[in-house]
Amino acid sequence: MREMDPSSGEPSAISRRSFLKGATQVAAAGGIIGAAPASEQDAEVEPEVETLSGSASMELLVNGKSRSVEVEPRTTLLHALRNEMKPPLTGTKEVCGTGSCGACTVLIDGQPAYSCLSLAVTCAGRPITTVEGFGSADAMSDVQQSFCDKDGMMCGFCTPGFVVATHAALDRAPKASLDELKYELSGNFCRCGTYPHVFDAAQAVQKDRARGEDGR
């Protein structure tokens, strides 16, 4: 098994296209092995194309920093963040793994996305913001502070996803009504039943931000 060595060392050394192309070829070659003698199979492979398999190193731009990760074509952004980074970024949670619950919500290019449904290789060169990117316990974002003030959390496992989704919702629809907020946050599940206090937290941020704008 050969691993690709990114020759240039640039963050964008592996484009999504070339990586996937390599990966697809591995799958295709695997399919041929059973059907044709090795020599014929070799003849069919274009000599210029490098066949990739296993993992390769790439750069992800997370919370403003370039981070090196070892990923396979199938590695999700969620697993790259949680398992491949050193140190790992475990604030983003895995709950369903199938794009149902929103616990793994991050921003990609400023847009909320389920990181369990995003392949890491598709994120090369695109700015990614995780819950850790919005603030720290000592310096929280307004949304994070509001979640604390309004008790927009119980067990807390859904909280990072809700915090990211709330940031995205308030950026996209700063003056959203309560019903619109519910729509914006409908991609996230909470099992403890924190929703009413999450809505309180989001509305308190709306008020604070509006007051800030009026003051200017």
Partner: peptide, 23 residues
């Protein structure tokens, strides 16, 4: 009274380490 939970900041910022997060 209303007491904000003391572990609110670590939960809201993703710093809280759950078993799932232990590395």
């Amino acid at each position: 009274r209303d007491i904000p939970r003391v572990d609110g900041p670590v939960k809201a910022t993703g710093e809280a380490v759950y078993t799932h997060d232990v590395r």
